[in-house]
Write a protein that binds this DNA or RNA. Sequence first.
DNA 1: ATTTGCATTAACAAAATTGTTAATTACATA
DNA 2: TATGTAATTAACAATTTTGTTAATGCAAAT
Lengths: 211, 211
Amino acid sequence: MDTTKKRHTDNKEADILHAAEREFLSKGYAGARTTAIAEAAGVTHAMLHYYFRTKEQLFKRILDEKLRLMGQSVLAAFGQPELPLMARIKDGIERHFDFIAANPELPRFIVNEIFAHPERYELMQENIRVLLNPLQYSLQQELDESAARNDTEPIDARMLLIDIISLNVFAFIAFPIIQPLLGDLTADREHFFAQRKQENIETIMRRLKKL
Amino acid sequence: MDTTKKRHTDNKEADILHAAEREFLSKGYAGARTTAIAEAAGVTHAMLHYYFRTKEQLFKRILDEKLRLMGQSVLAAFGQPELPLMARIKDGIERHFDFIAANPELPRFIVNEIFAHPERYELMQENIRVLLNPLQYSLQQELDESAARNDTEPIDARMLLIDIISLNVFAFIAFPIIQPLLGDLTADREHFFAQRKQENIETIMRRLKKL
DNA sequence: ATTTGCATTAACAAAATTGTTAATTACATA
DNA sequence: TATGTAATTAACAATTTTGTTAATGCAAAT
């Protein structure tokens, strides 16, 4: 029926939210145009103000959802405590990588908007902390136990998570820059990112292994 | 004499460029205001158009300079071929890290603006490639020789560089997000980044070492 | 001293962008 | 069917933002 990507439903409020997500994610708050959102949603731009009052309020709806999604993705990726440590971490890297691959615009969007307006972030902070603190502690405990058994190197769980997220996220963020520089390597996008995934797993596993 | 940060010289063109750099780096092209640039530079905004015609042309001056700087920083960091391989790479990581630490806004700026307008990047691409290709080849050659001697693990030089740049850049990009989540760890900013630097070196050295 | 050319300003203008409002339509329910 | 509420539109308005222009200043060369 509808061959276009943007399926307009009978729910204009949802259509606007959907169009806003695309506009804000790709252009950021400053670059986004409410008129463009309305047009993409197939409504007059007065409707946008009718449902969401202001650009800022509409934006906040999107940002909050994406912040929650980002936090949950980390939790979902590493929250498999039944596995042994190394398997748990390897599995976590893969899940987290796959999530970023499925949402490649998300990290840049969040990083930018938090940087531009840190105060927007303040309300969400506590929620995310509550979500991620238990993960941090359970992971740290496992790491400490494993290190005590001399199975792996001792490491701060937070540093390890930053390592993993750095490796998983950066290639997606920087892809438009490195692609023209590494033409052949990145020619097949799927293959390049499959390689990156393996490289990240290898790098982190080696970070933890006893030498 | 002048206790303010923005030293206005007798050269208004330079003052505008300096103010434009600060505005564009912190807000991006879409968020930057030419009136704010003119005000920060202490000139009427007509002067901005007199010297640079359009916002776009002024922006391009800044972007080109920053792209060149970013490319040169990688070259300068790893272009010390007299050292043995592991020392060369460790030294490169440190130099590159220090450059990012001294220019923490740069990666986000470049990543964003290239993503928003890839066509702006086309002219610079070839310059950067010419700059970085010799580095890539000399590094690959050393890596291959070292691996042939069974001193280190075999690895693609481009993948290694992406690993290093990912680790070095991401903590700076994401700092506003992780700081509120990891309050105590990041309380002393200097100390946190000193730790990150050591962590990155450790991670990459282990990536290369024979097990 | 006059001319010439660049630098500078104030005022203006055009377009874009966000937001409002009053009138109209659709729709459910009494 | 009448009525009340929500949805929708077109027109308007305010502000912001980029860019132009014509007049003026200023300093060096003729």
